[in-house]
Design a protein around this nucleic acid. Structure first.
Length: 496
DNA sequence: ATCGGAAACC
DNA sequence: GGTTTCCGAT
């Protein structure tokens, strides 16, 4: 048993804002069904109680500083029942977000990272009415400043430590059908690399704009969806007024409001394999044919996206180009046919286990773990039941109490609206808009690695290099600060 | 301090 | 799949 983990707090206590269990799954990873780190981080950032531990960095959108790494790690460890957690490990996890582009490291600033809200927010709140508050935090995120409206809804069932709040990041997943990976089994590409979230969204937008009711696959196009599932229908902001949502429109509805799925909600909510899905839980959208929207809004949305992406210092290449779309005069040049995506797998599956000398641990004994046939003695973690220091205890105690009314603790932010469970029962929808009529549509033949003009540009020097370069490097080079590459890209763009 | 590969874990 | 755990490199 994991000592130290007894304090797993669940909302049920008397919170009152109970949602069905499956309702919470959305934000967790489909696989693990557990809170994700970025989620947790956001939670902490959201609460003032943790201001001294981790806080938004004013000035930079989405940038935050971990003031007390050890504490954050401790909290995280507690949350995950991993008493051995430490900043080193936690930071490794954070680093994994780099490639997913959920997070970035702010170079030069110690313990400072930056969220890519495009990735986190937009995919989850695609149709927020940007006009009302500037969807993406135009100014620092949840900073209780100007954008009184932007605030991250609670992400997890339990709060950082155990508290919680009614609202949550709904992954809005509407998802569903998915199931079909458009690209073959092992073609799970992380388009996100390039997409940066926004691209994906854009693509979706495009699809929508094209008024292709039939199109589905979101971008990639090849997904057929199962006709027996109803995708949620988004109309427009306001359709799902969610008191807890900081946004004009509540993403939550998607959760239960509109699914008409025969399958378990939990399943349906689990964003699975969307071809373009960058990371589970993040891009739940299926760009289904079921959205209805306002062109006008879409425009704003897209525009906002562009700005945001830009503001986040993302690679310009992530900007999908859309004719007629106004973007900031920066180098945001857009090109109509952009949206290509990467097909590279950033983190290739393990090849096999190499024997690693982990035997060095001499004093562990396997608790209850079912030993597989590991070549080496199963590694057990010794979970010191006494991991809690006074501080921790104090905290957990406090947390528990806070839970019920946690909202009250965040005054400076937006007034947490009342926390009433927003749980609309999924109204069964009987008819669905359209059926995928274009199953094939190979139009979007994703250009594998090339994220540049598919059939165009003969071959830029850079490209060749890329070809010879491991995907990761390639990405890194491109994404991170490879001025050279960037320049090349720019040149290319301008040239064409 | 940070990064990222590798492998194990859940 | 998302970490967790280790660890060598920078």
């Amino acid at each position: 048993m994991k000592a130290g983990c007894s304090i797993v707090e669940k909302p049920e206590g008397g919170g009152g804002y109970q949602f069905p269990d499956w309702a919470y799954k959305t934000e967790s990873s489909p696989g693990s069904r557990q809170i994700q780190l970025w989620h947790f981080i956001l939670e902490l950032l959201q609460k003032e109680e943790f201001r001294h531990v981790i806080a938004w960095q004013q000035g930079e959108y989405g940038e935050f500083v971990i003031k007390d790494p050890d504490e954050v790690a401790r909290l995280w460890g507690r949350r995950k029942c991993k008493p051995q957690m430490n900043y080193d490990k936690l930071s490794r996890a954070l680093r994994y977000y780099y490639n997913k582009r959920i997070l970035h490291k702010t170079k030069g600033k110690r313990f400072t990272y930056k969220f890519n809200f495009n990735k986190l927010v937009m995919p989850n709140y695609p149709f927020i009415n940007i006009r009302s508050s500037g969807v993406v935090p135009q100014s620092a995120p949840p900073v209780p400043t100007a954008s009184s409206r932007f605030h991250f809804p609670p992400l997890d069932t339990h709060s950082p430590t155990s508290d919680v709040q009614p609202g949550r990041f709904s992954a809005s997943s509407l998802t569903t059908s998915g199931q079909e990976s458009s690209n073959g089994p092992d073609r799970k590409v992380e388009l996100s690399e390039l997409e940066d979230g926004s691209a994906a969204d854009w693509r979706r937008g495009v699809d929508l704009m094209s008024s292709r009711n039939a199109v589905v696959g979101g971008g990639i196009g090849h997904q057929k969806r199962k006709p027996d599932i109803m995708l949620p229908l988004f109309t427009r902001p306001g359709m799902y007024p969610d008191p807890h949502s900081p946004f004009a429109v509540s993403p939550i509805p998607s959760r239960g409001g509109v699914l008409n799925v025969p399958i378990s909600p939990a399943l349906s909510l689990t964003p699975t394999i969307f071809s373009y899905s960058p990371s589970p839980g993040l891009s739940p959208f299926t760009s289904s044919s079921c959205f209805s929207f306002n062109p006008e809004e879409m425009k704003h949305y897209l525009h906002s996206q562009a700005c945001s992406v830009f503001n986040y210092h993302l690679s310009p290449r992530t900007f999908p180009r859309y004719p007629g779309l106004m973007v900031p005069p920066l180098q945001c040049q857009m090109h109509p046919e952009e949206s290509t995506q990467f097909s590279i797998k950033l983190q290739p599956p393990p090849v096999g286990r190499k024997n690693r000398e982990r035997v060095e641990s001499s004093e562990e004994s396997a608790p209850v773990t079912a030993p597989t046939m590991a070549p080496v003695p199963p590694r057990i973690k010794v979970e010191p039941a006494s991991e809690k220091d006074p501080e921790s205890l104090r905290q957990s105690a406090r947390e528990k109490q806070e839970r019920p009314q946690e909202e009250g603790t965040v005054p400076s932010r937006t007034i947490e609206e009342e926390k009433s469970p927003i749980f609309a029962r999924p109204a069964a929808r009987s008819s669905w808009p359209s059926v995928p009529s274009t199953p094939s549509e190979e139009s979007l033949e994703m250009t594998e690695d090339s994220e540049d003009r598919p059939g165009k540009e003969p071959s830029a020097p850079e490209k060749k290099e890329d070809a010879l370069m491991p995907p990761k490097l390639r990405l890194k080079r491109r994404w991170n600060d490879d001025p050279e590459a960037r320049e090349l890209r720019n040149v290319k763009h301008t040239a064409s």
